[in-house]
């Protein structure tokens, strides 16, 4: 439990909690740099803006990019929610949320509708987010061209020229070989008609939510030191061929074993008796359905 030791270290080191640390762990200069980067990213939707990613008390690859954005944005009036795979109870989500809370005093919530800032890994909430909210996505590999061009410098040149021929070729070869585009989570998208962007490993189910949403999406890749953004009301289209249209995951004849929902992204676990158990990945949505609360889930 790498991340836990990191946090523990800070707590032990400083005697109690985060006394002696700055509000939001990051120093003011780091926050300012991240804020400047976020504003640039918003002004150039889908373009990866490099930033001086700081070392965090959480391991690289465990949400340091999202965490730096969250800590640079969060203020006294915010309510935060952190999810991993849609689940607030996932240990890494718990660990990130308590770090944010302990270093800022921000209110925490498990309810999508109550949060002003939601940090997430691999999911966009089922409940439609509003203009008063922001979604901060943790990103492992920000470069959508990485599998067709491993050089960062060369990929950058391709983005500069909007030269996505090799990306299209790779998708075409995929169709030829497999009969369809086989990308599952992290399906590449075109943002504002200009930049091909890695949406982070969200399932296809969540890709349409990025298009013309009311809310702002910020993407943080700590290890790769990149921040990018999709502003509200921005065109975000999956890369697709006319004769091989993009399709999302389907759960025919399935429902959540816990709440009965048939309109949410379901995840399955094998059971001891050989059957499988399907439940909502979004625990907040599942709670709402279970409690009979009506939430808007049409994005």
């Amino acid at each position: 439990m790498v991340s836990a030791t990191g946090v523990r270290a800070l707590i032990d080191e400083r005697g109690a909690e985060f006394e002696g640390y700055t509000f939001g762990f990051l120093d003011d200069m780091a926050k300012r740099e991240i804020r400047r980067t976020i504003l640039k990213a918003v002004a150039i939707p889908g373009h990866q803006v490099p930033f001086g990613s700081r070392e965090m008390p959480i391991a690289r690859g465990w949400g340091t990019g999202g965490l730096q954005i969250t800590l640079a944005c969060v203020g006294a009036d915010d309510t935060i929610k952190v999810i991993d795979q849609g689940d607030d109870a996932s240990v890494n989500a718990v660990n990130l949320r308590r770090l944010i809370a302990k270093t800022t005093g921000a209110r925490e919530t498990l309810t999508t509708g109550e949060a002003t800032l939601i940090q997430t890994r691999h999911r966009i909430p089922e409940e439609r987010m509003t203009a008063a909210q922001m979604l901060i996505l943790q990103v492992p590999i920000p470069e959508p061209l990485r599998h067709v061009e491993r050089s960062v410098a060369a990929a950058r040149a391709m983005h500069a020229e909007a030269d996505y021929a090799r990306m299209w070729l790779a998708l075409y070869e995929d169709v030829v070989r497999n009969g369809e585009v086989t990308a599952g989570a992290g399906y590449p998208v075109m943002v504002n008609g200009r930049f091909v962007m890695a949406p982070s490993p969200i399932p296809r189910w969540d890709i349409p939510k990025l298009n013309q949403a009311e809310t702002l999406f910020l993407f943080g890749a700590g290890r790769e030191k990149r921040i990018y953004a999709v502003p509200p009301f921005t065109n975000v289209q999956p890369l697709e061929f006319d004769d091989y249209p993009f399709e999302i995951e389907a759960f025919p004849n399935m429902s959540c074993r816990r709440c009965g929902a048939t309109d949410s992204y379901l995840v399955t676990s094998p059971q001891a008796d050989g059957s499988t158990l399907s439940v909502c990945s979004d625990t907040s949505y599942c709670d709402d359905v279970l409690a009979g609360r009506k939430v808007e889930n049409q994005w």
């Binding site: 790498v2 690289r60 795979q85 691999h122 990308a183 490993p201 995951e249």
Partner: peptide
């Protein structure tokens, strides 16, 4: 080490997506 070991984090949402494509 952070990135290699992050594979310990849950990936079941992505796995569902992958299984559907397969």
């Amino acid at each position: 080490m952070g990135f290699v070991e992050h594979l310990k984090l849950p990936h079941y949402v992505d796995f569902v997506a992958s299984v559907q494509r397969t």
